[in-house]
């Protein structure tokens, strides 16, 4: 169950590999930016090409509200980011 101060984070394409999941619910510590939300789920912000909140593209410094759905879209990834 989503708590009152959480967002749903969906990870597109290869970012799911870094986070180890395609979707998760994240408790927000205060009012983080989207870049900080990415870091929270284990994705380096500079690997995220675009952020969308509830289906609308937003800049990395946008601060999502509780209950929002955040989508992290990877940069052209050319395959796996880790290992060989």
């Amino acid at each position: 169950m989503a708590s009152s101060n959480s967002v749903v984070v969906k990870l597109g394409g290869t970012l799911a590999e870094l986070a180890g999941t395609k979707q998760l619910c994240v408790e927000l510590p205060g009012e983080p930016t989207l870049a900080e939300v990415a870091a929270l789920v284990g994705v380096a912000p500079n690997l995220v090409m675009l952020y969308a909140v509830n289906g609308t593209l937003r800049a990395a410094d946008y601060r999502p509200s509780p209950g929002d759905e955040v989508l992290l879209i990877p940069a052209v990834a050319g395959g796996q980011l880790t290992g060989r």
């Binding site: 675009l50 879209i73 052209v76």
Partner: peptide
Amino acid sequence: DPGLQVWHDYGLGSVCSWANS
């Protein structure tokens, strides 16, 4: 895939600002 709409709307043009950043 929820990301598909981005490709439909923007195509590869969306790489520009990321590459710059």
